[in-house]
Design a protein around this nucleic acid. Sequence first.
DNA 1: CGAAACGGTAAGAGCCTCTTATCATTTTAT
DNA 2: ATAAAATGATAAGAGGCTCTTACCGTTTCG
Lengths: 296, 296
Amino acid sequence: MLPELKIQPLRYVLAIVDAGGFHAAARQLHRTQPAVSMAVRELEQRLGEPLFEKGGKATLTPFGAYCLPRFRALINQHDRLSRELVAQVEKRAGHLDMAAVPSVASRLMPRLLGDFIARYPNLRVSLQDGNADFVSRMVAGGEVDLGFTSLWQQDDDLAFLPLMHDAVGVVCRDDHPLAQRQALDWRELQGHALIRNGTSRLLEGTEAAPLLAQSAFDISNMISLTAMLVAGVGITTLPRLAFPEEYARLRFIPLATPYVERELGLLRLRQRSLSPAAQAMEAFIIHELNGEPAAE
Amino acid sequence: MLPELKIQPLRYVLAIVDAGGFHAAARQLHRTQPAVSMAVRELEQRLGEPLFEKGGKATLTPFGAYCLPRFRALINQHDRLSRELVAQVEKRAGHLDMAAVPSVASRLMPRLLGDFIARYPNLRVSLQDGNADFVSRMVAGGEVDLGFTSLWQQDDDLAFLPLMHDAVGVVCRDDHPLAQRQALDWRELQGHALIRNGTSRLLEGTEAAPLLAQSAFDISNMISLTAMLVAGVGITTLPRLAFPEEYARLRFIPLATPYVERELGLLRLRQRSLSPAAQAMEAFIIHELNGEPAAE
DNA sequence: CGAAACGGTAAGAGCCTCTTATCATTTTAT
DNA sequence: ATAAAATGATAAGAGGCTCTTACCGTTTCG
């Protein structure tokens, strides 16, 4: 019914007009003159109306003149689109959404993001933080491209790529009896006021589990937690990375027995592939955290 | 450098998405499924990024989802353009500019234009009138597509297509001594006050030429001329078509000796071809004025 | 568990587009 | 004025692109 216009012959027409002839156009198009002539003739037949006058000269017919700006508009939109898509693929444009647990967001992401945008200056990154459950829900719901979190629970739709280990330790104020120790056994914590937090569940299923039962508080907010630690209300357990180093009076003592660690890594939807920008981020993070990706 | 996107594969992508699968899309496109698969794969390779997820299902990748509306936009512009150009060619859209001498404009064009727009309801026509010199200058300058005029002077750039003959006669008031005659010899006009007008030059080169010398007035404006004729100031010569029939007191008597006529016809640029709308008008006028075109 | 539907792959036919070679006509230069 | 150069058109053939037919492996659904 309606004719299918190919981009290339339209380009030929433009070239003929602005080069002022079929030969000149062919030269600038890296084609031979018959190729140009034939393509134009084919286009004219398809439209049912000549674009160029017959008499030897490369002059537009009125119909050709009418077509010219419209051809140019279509070609421009084509080229704009083509350029835009290539930019996306080559990571020179685009955006990605991430989510990370607070410790990662505050301790790892600043440097990573800084280096990332230095490498890909035109990519836009949006980062949200929340607990591991929040992160995995954001990933599972497709609201973010990537999550940087600890493994929360198995989910067949999610792929978790472990990148680093983060050992749990005890956090207390510098005047606490345990503050000067280099390592601790969980039994030494018995009798001390223990404040639970969101990461305390890491102790579940370990020999230190009984500690959880004895704790009087459960504080999920990090600001509140540190305030209570600084106030000397009690001690808590935290993974190393979650330990707020900027508080001078707080100490981190590794828990030697049992040795408990969380695994931090990248979380993504197993089914859906990543946008080019998200691919760049994934590869960048894997590379930066010195690593071949662990077996998935 | 930048990849050349062909319209067809983009259409395939759209069809796959809204038909919900490769097979269904192939059916609706009147293609086989491998054709669709291969075209999509080719497009993906050209872009350097998959559009559909690999796992059996016809699901868009994030990149594919990004592309989809843009593909649709490009296709829409293509189809809009294609439709528009076809409409032009098929005379369902477009416009044309004409010029005609006043007699043609007022006596022939009203009916012609009426019938023309009945036949081509969506074409826009603009008509200007002026003397033969004006008309030929408009045509020669490309300011109008067609002129309807009498042959003014030969011009190699202009093509004149004769369509009708218009015999010259004498115009006088109904109480003039010659008013009841059926035909006249030029010699009978001698001694009568003759008013020249723009068409009087038709007598030049004929045996009636001496009449021109004896005329006291030269009135080019038709309104003024008729006013003077009605006032009985004198008589004039006019081609039949230029005779203002709406003036009850004026009479037209054919000039039998010499028989003088002007040739009315279509004037156009010989080099430039006509726009589709102008082609329609030319063909329409030729057809309406009952004729095979006389030899050009 | 078999049948149907899904998408992918391989081989070949046919068409489309390009190149080479040639021509007729017009323009330019001597 | 005539030779030389440049213009666009045309014909034949090579090569590439895009289809179709035929087939495979996997998943989905009675």
